[in-house]
Each structure stands twice: as structure tokens, then as C-alpha cells.
């Protein structure tokens, strides 16, 4: 591993942030997953600091996307309030736990998360049938632009969603990703929420979840203030470019390529964690 000139590290982060942010916006993948891999494996930033930087990137990109989703009434605000009580609890516990975990444990967990992400990207099954007759306070509706119709849905299996949210929050606090990859499939397949509403609602919770962990890293002095600027700016510019210039791409090939890349880095991290690879 060649050590980069310290003066070039902010530039590298800025450039990669633009790349990760635009790719994330195109594929509906939070920028956190790509950012954390880059910080850990390409720049050799210590694990806790890399997680902390990734978390603030996640706050920025998800809050920005969240502001658009809620304006378009895609977000189920009540459901978000219920589930974020769980994600935030998990996030505080996760961040607290992470600070006493050895680096190898963080690498191993991130490796597993990358494998899981890769699998969900390959499968990407969508629940198509919803119970449209809602009567509970959590039920929602939104206007689907593609279908030119208002979609109503009934929220099912709230308890499963609560557990998934708690786990997603904890994982987010430990490895510095948003946790959407854990919540969205559960919300869609088990809670029977249409994918667009599930993604928007999950994204909405991600900002506050990442903030709950980030504040603990922040208080512990683990956020590198010199690298914070390039990290956030890069991911924001990237997200802007990704959403404005490139229409949300459903490119299957791109998804599969990225899924393979994530699985590759997942394997690298697991090998590193096991001490079998000195990257």
C-alpha cells in the first residue's frame, strides 16, 4: 500500500465523495457504503475516524435527499417517528459499543454488511401487492408519478420493522453506513410498504440515526475536522450531480457490477479482520 502525500488526502476524499455521491444517487444506495470502504482501504484512515467521517457524509446526503422526498409527500412521517425511536436507540448503543470494539470486529461486521448489501442488490425482489384499505394511523399514501395514481397502503408487521430498525441503527453506529440496506427490504417485503415509500421513509430516518451515533464520535473527538469539509462537500456535489444530470438509473448491469465490487471488498475486509491479509 503506497502512502498518499498527506496534502493529497483531502483532494482524494473530495474526488471520491463526488463519485460515491453520484453513484449512490443513481442507484438509490446511500453514499456511506462506498465512502467507508474508500476511507478504510484506500486511505488507511483508522477505523473509528473513518466511521465518524462516513457518518457525517451520511447525515448530509440523507438529509438533502430527505428534504426532497418529504416535500414530494413520499415519506410516511408517522411511521418514521415510530421506527426512528428504535433506530436511534440502536445507533447510540452501536456507537458506544463500537468505541470499545477492536478494529478487527468493525472490519468483520462491515465485511458481513457488504456481503449482505451485495446479495440484496442481486436479488432485488419487490413486493408488488399491498393491502390498499388502510384504517390505522400509520397507513399512508403517496402519488406515484410513474403510475400516475395515488397509491395507498396498509402497514403490516410493525414489530418486525421495529426489530429491524433497532438492528439497522446499531449496525449504522458501528460501521458508519446509513442502514437503509437493512431496513428497506424488510419494510417492503415484510411490512408491505411500496418500495418508493419504504425508501423515502427509511432515508428520512437515516439522517437522525447517523446524527445519534455521530454526536458520540464528535464528543469523543473522533471526527477529523480537517477532512470533514472535503468529505461532506464531495458527497453533496456528487448527490446533486447524480440526481440532476443523470435520471435515476435502473441499469441492471451497473447494479450487478457494483454488487460484485461490494462482495469483493467484503471478502477483503473479512480476510483483514481475520489477520489473513495485510492490506
Amino acid at each position: 500500500m503506497v502512502d498518499l502525500d498527506p496534502n493529497l488526502v483531502p483532494v482524494a476524499i473530495l474526488m471520491f465523495g463526488i463519485f460515491a455521491g453520484s453513484l449512490g444517487a443513481m442507484l438509490g444506495l446511500g453514499g456511506g457504503v462506498l465512502m467507508i470502504i474508500f476511507l478504510l482501504l484506500a486511505l488507511n484512515i483508522p477505523a473509528h475516524q473513518a466511521v465518524a467521517l462516513s457518518l457525517i457524509a451520511v447525515i448530509a446526503s440523507s438529509s438533502m435527499a430527505g428534504s426532497v422526498y418529504i416535500k414530494d409527500r413520499m415519506t410516511n412521517l408517522r411511521l418514521a417517528m415510530v421506527l426512528e425511536a428504535f433506530t436511534v436507540s440502536g445507533a447510540v448503543a452501536g456507537a458506544f459499543l463500537a468505541l470499545s470494539l477492536p478494529v478487527s470486529a468493525i472490519q468483520a461486521l462491515l465485511g458481513c454488511v457488504l456481503f449482505y448489501t451485495s446479495i440484496t442488490m442481486f436479488k432485488e425482489r419487490e413486493a408488488e401487492c399491498f393491502e390498499s384499505l388502510g384504517s390505522g394511523t400509520l397507513d399512508g399514501e403517496f402519488y406515484d408519478e410513474r403510475a400516475c395514481a395515488t397509491v395507498k397502503y396498509r402497514v403490516r408487521n410493525l414489530e418486525v420493522g421495529a426489530v429491524a430498525s433497532l438492528i439497522a441503527g446499531a449496525v449504522s453506529g458501528i460501521v458508519g453506513i446509513g442502514g437503509g440496506v437493512i431496513k428497506v427490504p424488510i419494510m417492503n417485503l415484510v411490512m408491505k410498504i411500496p418500495i418508493k415509500a419504504a425508501a423515502a421513509t427509511s432515508n428520512f430516518m437515516v439522517g437522525v440515526t447517523a446524527a445519534a451515533s455521530a454526536v458520540i464520535y464528535f464528543q469523543s473527538g473522533l471526527i477529523d475536522l480537517h477532512l470533514a469539509g472535503p468529505t461532506i462537500l464531495g458527497i453533496m456535489v456528487g448527490a446533486y450531480v447524480g440526481t440532476r444530470l443523470l435520471a435515476r438509473s435502473r441499469s441492471v448491469v451497473l447494479r450487478k457490477v457494483l454488487a460484485v465490487v461490494l462482495a469483493f471488498f467484503g471478502a477483503i475486509l473479512l480476510l483483514k479482520a481475520g489477520g489473513l491479509l495485510a492490506w
Binding site: M81, E84, A85, V88, S89, A91, V92, A95, F96, L99, S100, V208, A211, A212, S213, V215, I216, Q219, S220
Partner: peptide, 13 residues
């Protein structure tokens, strides 16, 4: 949620 966030912000390791 606000309470958890505030508690978190006082947790200094």
C-alpha cells in the same frame, strides 16, 4: 428520540 439524542451527546468516551 430527542431525549436519546441529548443523552448521546453527553456520552463522552
Amino acid at each position: 428520540v430527542i431525549m436519546i439524542l441529548v443523552i448521546g451527546s453527553f456520552l463522552r468516551i
